[in-house]
Design a protein around this nucleic acid. Structure first.
Lengths: 202, 202
DNA sequence: ATCGTTTTTGATAGATCGCTCTAGCGATAG
DNA sequence: CTATCGCTAGAGCGATCTATCAAAAACGAT
C-alpha cells in the first residue's frame, strides 16, 4: 500500500511503471521485454506478476492510462499558461520539438507506438489507448469551449491538433528533423488564431 | 530472375514480401515473426534467407521501401485524377477512411507502425522509413508546385498533409472511428483550397 | 519471542524467437 | 546422361520470451 513517501526511492511498482512507460514509448510494446523493464527499474522479476497479475498486458494497459493522463495534464498546463489559444498551441508543439531533440528523437508521444502496434492485436490494450485519446479530446474540447469556441469547432480543432501532433511525431522521429513538428504546429496555430479572432469568425 | 509471369501465382519472393507488408502494417515489425510470414506466404522458411541474406532486418527494409513506393504511386494517382488539389486531398483522405473501415481498422499507413517502432532501435530500418517519407514529400512538393504553388508553400502543405494523415490514422485505428480522418482531411483540404484560390492568395 | 499471514523474490519451465545448416528437387547446358 | 545452379524444404541451435511457483523475507498480533 506504499504510495511513495517523501523519503527514499519510489516504490517498486512505481519504478516498474516508470521504466515500462519509457521503454514502451521508445521501442513499442512487443519490442520491449519484461526482463528489460525489471532490469531498468532495478526490480525483481517476480514483482511484475505480484503488482500486475494480468501479466504484460495489464502492465501495458496501466502504463498507457497513467502516462496518457500525465500527458493530458501537460497539455492543459501549457495551454492555460499561454496568453491565448494560438500561442498555447505554438508553445505545445515547440515544447514537444525540444523534448524530442533533447532525447535524441526518442521521446515523442507516450502511447502512439503502442497504439499502432496493438490496434489490431489486443483488445484490452486498444481500449486503453482509445480511452486516453478520448480523454485528450474531451480535455481539449473543454479548454477551447471555455476559451470561447463553439462545441463543434472546439472538438474539430482538438482532433486536428492531435492528428497533426501525432503525425508530425512519426515524421520527425523517422527523419530526425523537427521540421514536421514546426510546420504542423504552425498550421494548427494559424487555424486556432483564425477561430479565436472575433472579428473574422466563420 | 522470375518477375512473375502472367500465369500462375506470384513468385516466392513476391509472396514473402506481400505477406510481410501486410503483417508489418497491421502488427508492426517486432510483433511479426518470420514463421508467421512464411506461413501466410505459403513459402518455405529457408527461402527467406535465400532471398534476404540480411535476415529479418533486410526483409523489413525492402518491404518498407516497396510498399512505401506503392503508396506514393497511389497518392499521385488520386491527386492527378481530381479536378483540383483540394478535391484531390479530400478524395485521398476519403479513400483512406474507406480502406480502413473495409479492413476492420487494420490497414492504414503501410509503414507508420514500423517507423515508430524502429526509430530508436534499428538504424537501417529507420533509414528506410526516412527515405520513404522523404520521397513522399518530394512527390507531393512536385505535384503542388506543378499545380501552381510556390516551392515553400508546396512543401509545407505536403508536410501538413502527411502529418495530418499519419496522426489521423493513429487516432482512427485506436478509436475505431473515421472521424479523425474526416476532420483532419477537411482541415488540410481547406488549407489547400485557400492556397490554390488565386484571388485571395497570401 | 513465536506464530500466522502477507508480500517479495529469483530460479525455472515451456514456448517461441531469429537464424543456420544440410539435403534434395527440377530445369538447363554440355 | 551428368553436372551445375537456383531454389525449396524443414530439422534444430542458442537465445529470449512470458509466466509460474515455492521459498524467503517482512510484518502484526499475542
Amino acid at each position: 500500500m506504499n504510495a511513495g513517501p517523501a523519503t527514499g526511492r519510489p516504490s517498486t511498482k512505481e519504478r516498474i511503471m516508470a521504466a515500462g512507460a519509457e521503454l514502451f514509448r521508445r521501442q513499442g510494446y512487443t519490442g520491449t521485454g519484461l526482463k528489460q523493464i525489471v532490469a531498468e527499474a532495478e526490480a525483481p522479476f517476480g514483482s511484475v506478476y505480484h503488482f500486475f497479475p494480468g501479466g504484460k498486458e495489464q502492465l501495458g494497459a496501466e502504463v498507457v492510462r497513467s502516462s496518457g493522463a500525465g500527458y493530458g495534464r501537460l497539455f492543459t498546463a501549457v495551454m492555460e499558461e499561454a496568453p491565448d489559444p494560438a500561442t498555447g498551441v505554438r508553445d505545445f508543439f515547440a515544447g514537444a520539438a525540444r523534448t524530442l531533440v533533447e532525447t535524441g528523437y526518442a521521446d515523442a508521444c507516450p502511447i502512439a507506438t503502442v497504439a499502432l502496434e496493438v490496434a489490431s492485436t489486443s483488445e484490452p490494450l486498444r481500449q486503453a489507448t482509445a480511452d486516453v485519446f478520448t480523454e485528450w479530446i474531451a480535455l481539449g474540447t473543454g479548454f477551447f469551449t471555455r476559451a470561447g469556441a463553439g462545441e463543434r469547432e472546439a472538438r474539430e480543432l482538438v482532433i486536428t491538433l492531435l492528428s497533426a501532433l501525432e503525425g508530425a511525431f512519426v515524421l520527425s522521429r523517422a527523419l530526425r528533423t523537427t521540421e514536421p513538428l514546426e510546420v504542423a504546429g504552425e498550421s494548427v496555430a494559424a487555424r486556432a488564431a483564425a477561430l479565436f479572432t472575433p472579428a473574422t469568425a466563420t
